[in-house]
Design a binder for these strands. Structure first.
Lengths: 238, 238
DNA sequence: ATCATCTAATGATAAGATTATTGGCTTGAA
DNA sequence: TTCAAGCCAATAATCTTATCATTAGATGAT
């Protein structure tokens, strides 16, 4: 079993640490990264794992290497913004001032499309699952009104969105959906902490689920768009 | 200087080779990959680079490792479809039967959004650049009518699309645009080889450019959508 | 200035120590 | 007997260390 409690590997730790340093601008505008030997002692890792880390960071578009010349951090335009690690690091450093607008804009184009596709392509079972999750969302909402933590509601909300992406029967949309879901799980804590935000969003969630259930693509897309817009409003209030 | 003529690294070669093997289903439905020592001799690479390769393939969602149990290829749903390497490998193996529909569907949701955003957000210079590229596209189109190769036209077409994504002022859309552009450069050879396909698509390209020039988001989105639809028609004829 | 040479950095290989996980074996109690 | 908990060894990834090769900037003699 992939136990979540096992100690993080040296690789994972080093990747995370160096990734954060790069994204936070720790190496200046020139972006010259110390040579391998120096990085090893700074990060406390052997040259082997460090090179693995640098390869992965290169794959994420953060750095590129050249013999003799050394490592350089790449211009930000090359950073892979579909990568959850990169997104996490960005989110940590410049929290919700820099990329938030673009992220919401991106959701605004992708989520309606996914809802539309789901309404057309979902299996009967998927439609039932989505409706069911919407029902559970309502239950959890009421539980919150009684003073319960919104942790469980967040989880259900996350599952609801993912179910829609899955039902779109488009693996590229599902892929993007995973990325969006990952960010949402961090953002949602902010979004829903606004009092009544969950209750307010409930009718739109139901509208999405019902539109998908009856195969109305246009309505599903419109409701999904409204839902993102509502999130937008809530986030801008914080 | 990053010379394009320098010999490919062992790392790049091994990554490509192993990546293709995995995507082509070379390791069976179980997806059990031989252990490191065995892979080394099969691929002719040292353990060091092999581990770097495996880490990158893990980052792309293709494989995951566990001590004692070995390397396993991950279920296809986890493969990172926003990664150009993965896409290349997939495209090579199951060429334009499996993922083509989903790719075009994805373009259909993203490109209109990018055109829309570009119409609203582009700078004056960007609008001029897009119009200029559209004009060059017309020139190249006429050159093709005279029997010239469509290689140059393809390059301009690619630049045209990328300029629109860039003008959207949304770095996530730009990122996705890079991915789409990468695939287009391979698909476009098929698309435009249909006789007259270029000429037929020209009016729509002009419609996009003009809509962006005058800041008409709705018209730009609609023209972009029509353009993808036209591509769809051409591709289904092959 | 130009060219050969030196030097310092990444690229690649090899070998060994370490750590974690599985699977079997044993032990012990119901 | 049967089942479960705990121990042990085999195995594979993980990590370290050392060494050589390759590359390109820097140096210096012509």
């Amino acid at each position: 079993m992939a136990d979540s409690t096992r100690r993080p590997s040296v690789f994972a730790y080093t990747l995370d640490k160096l990734g954060r340093q790069i994204v936070s601008g720790h190496f200046g505008v020139e972006g010259v990264i110390p040579r391998e030997a120096k990085l090893c002692e700074q990060l406390g890792a052997s040259r082997g794992v460090l090179r693995e880390v640098l390869r992965v960071l290169g794959d994420k578009g953060l750095v590129s290497a050249q013999p003799k010349v050394g490592m350089r951090v790449q211009p930000e335009i090359n950073w892979n913004l579909m990568d959850t690690d990169v997104l996490d690091w960005l989110w940590e450093h410049r929290s919700r001032t820099d990329y938030l607008r673009e992220f919401l804009e991106f959701r605004m184009t992708v989520e309606p499309a996914a809802a539309h596709a789901a309404a057309l392509n979902a299996t009967e079972e998927e439609r039932r699952e989505i409706s069911s999750l919407c029902g559970r969302l309502q239950d959890e909402s009421e539980r919150i009104m009684d003073g319960a933590s919104d942790e469980r509601a967040q989880k259900v909300d996350f599952q609801f969105h993912m179910a829609i992406f899955r039902a779109s029967r488009n693996r590229m949309l599902i892929n993007v959906g995973n990325m969006i879901g990952h960010i949402m799980r961090q953002q949602i804590a902010v979004t829903t902490s606004a009092p009544g935000a969950f209750r307010e969003g409930l009718p739109l969630h139901r509208a999405i689920a019902e539109a998908i259930a009856r195969g109305d693509g246009e309505a599903a897309a419109q409701a999904a768009e409204e839902n993102v817009r509502l999130t937008q409003v809530h986030l801008q209030k914080t």
